[in-house]
Nucleic acid binder design. Structure first.
Length: 235
DNA sequence: ACATATGGACTGTTTACCTCA
DNA sequence: TATGAGGTAAACAGTCCATAT
């Protein structure tokens, strides 16, 4: 662990004694659960505040104990010694979240300043940001996955519908081979692959114009294929 | 009491950058 | 000047595990 003593002092605003014994660990107490009853809620809110205040103090002791423990096991893996775990207060979490919203990474100066502001070690701030990035990414992957799943379902359904429509057309053509048929409604529409919106099939001149750069396109062609240039650049 | 979820902390790997021979 | 080796720091992926629910 690269944690220096000044980091501890920085975090605590005091010096940790250099004795061999670890400081007494003040474990945070569990806050009472919120009651649905309105009459009780105020009392409980007050209790919760008290408990949080206690937790805050416990955290400071905890920090010191943790740092001392870190020093003890420096250079060793932590097998055998139980891993200490910090519980961030609401204020600390809120500040970290706020900073993360602004920027998901921190440079060394920002990290140190934020750690000082939070009464945490820079390493703890660093780890928090690492975990936050990892978990944000995971959440985003889940969202993307769900989106793709729904997109796939929609396309499958659309495919099934078009197959059915095609079948019906074949049947009609077999029954009346010489008759001329109108194009099905779906064939008269085109889908913009970027915004996924249906647009009426453009007249031939507009479609040709859509292949020209945006600056040389007519207003109608631009309206029909608003994302044409983006598509080209993506390919 | 137990199962599960959450999130702080860790290890190992990759990548970018710098220095130096 | 260009280049490869070695060192360093930061980010990331994967995991552990204490704690909360």
């Amino acid at each position: 662990m690269y944690m220096a003593q000044e980091d501890v002092d920085l975090a605590l605003g005091l010096s940790v004694g250099s004795g061999t014994g670890k400081p007494h660990l003040l474990q945070p107490k569990e806050a009472p659960p919120l009651e649905p009853s309105l009459t009780l809620s105020l009392t409980i809110a007050v209790k919760r505040e008290k408990v949080e205040e206690e937790n805050k103090r416990a955290m400071i002791y905890y920090s010191a104990a943790s740092s001392a423990a870190d020093d003890d096991i420096e250079g060793c893996n932590n097998s055998g010694s139980s891993r200490k775990k910090l519980k961030l207060t609401k204020e600390q979490s809120a500040l970290l979240e706020g900073r993360f919203k602004e920027h998901s990474t921190l440079d060394t100066k920002q990290k140190t300043a934020l750690a000082r502001q939070l009464n945490l070690r820079p390493r703890q701030v660093e780890v928090w940001f690492q975990n936050r990035r990892a978990r944000t990414k995971l959440k985003q992957t889940e969202v993307d996955c769900e989106l793709l799943k729904r997109c796939c379902e929609t396309l499958t359904e659309e495919n099934r519908r078009l197959h059915l429509e095609l079948q019906q057309l074949h049947h009609q053509q077999q029954r009346h081979p010489t008759a001329a048929f109108f194009m099905p409604a779906a064939a008269m529409l085109s889908v913009c692959p970027s915004c996924n919106r249906l647009a009426p099939a453009p007249p031939a001149h507009a479609a040709a114009a859509a292949d020209r750069p945006a600056s040389k396109r007519s207003a109608s062609a631009r309206q029909l294929y608003p994302h044409k240039d983006r598509h080209a650049s993506m390919n």
